[in-house]
């Protein structure tokens, strides 16, 4: 369930669009930033705001890879292995982090497609904040910095940091 503040925000978001259905993606981001994932119940709630069915919201949201339909901890680590990162060490960063955090419920490591950071490849995002020019070791350090609070993370859906 959206918090009272987010309910207010949800109404504002819906009002930005001529048709409420357009608000499905932003409301799903809002729910995911709040809950850390996109639950079945959140889809139900979004359906009410957007004048549609939960099946429709599920169908729409499942199309987009940023929405996580199971809890994934506080940090989503997205490592690029696409054709630039591929040849400059991206797969090695991925393998290292996957191994390192295999049993860490707070860190969800995923392989992603091109992040548009090829000039400084290999690169990754943690909760959609960029980290570039990585080595396996420096990438691990970044994740550790987030875990220790030395770096302040965005929401799991990339929402702005709340003061």
């Amino acid at each position: 369930m959206f918090t009272e503040a987010n309910k207010k925000r949800a109404v504002e978001i819906v009002a930005q669009y001529p048709k409420a259905h357009s608000a499905i993606l932003p409301l799903a981001h809002l729910a995911q930033d709040q809950d850390g994932w996109l639950s079945l119940d959140a889809m139900d709630e979004i359906a009410d705001y957007c004048d549609t069915t939960a099946a429709d919201v599920q169908g729409v949201c499942s199309f987009y890879t940023m929405y996580k339909r199971r809890p994934c901890g506080n940090f989503v680590v997205s490592v690029c292995t696409n054709v630039t990162c591929l040849v400059v060490g991206g797969p090695e960063v991925l393998e290292h982090l996957e191994h390192k955090y295999a049993n860490d419920n707070d860190v969800f490591v995923e392989e992603v497609e091109c992040l548009a950071a090829c000039g400084n490849a290999p690169s990754m995002q943690v909760n959609y904040e960029y980290h570039e020019h990585l080595t396996p070791e420096s990438a691990e350090q970044v994740v550790e910095d987030y875990k220790a609070g030395r770096l302040v993370a965005r929401g799991v859906s990339g929402g702005a940091v709340h003061a």
């Binding site: 048709k19 940023m66 929405y67």
Partner: peptide
């Protein structure tokens, strides 16, 4: 309007669908 991870939405008609919440 933020997308949510789908390259195909760079195709203009897919982008419009996405903007319509589809």
């Amino acid at each position: 309007h933020r997308g949510a991870g789908a390259y195909i939405c760079g195709e203009e008609s897919a982008l419009i669908e996405s903007l319509e919440g589809k």
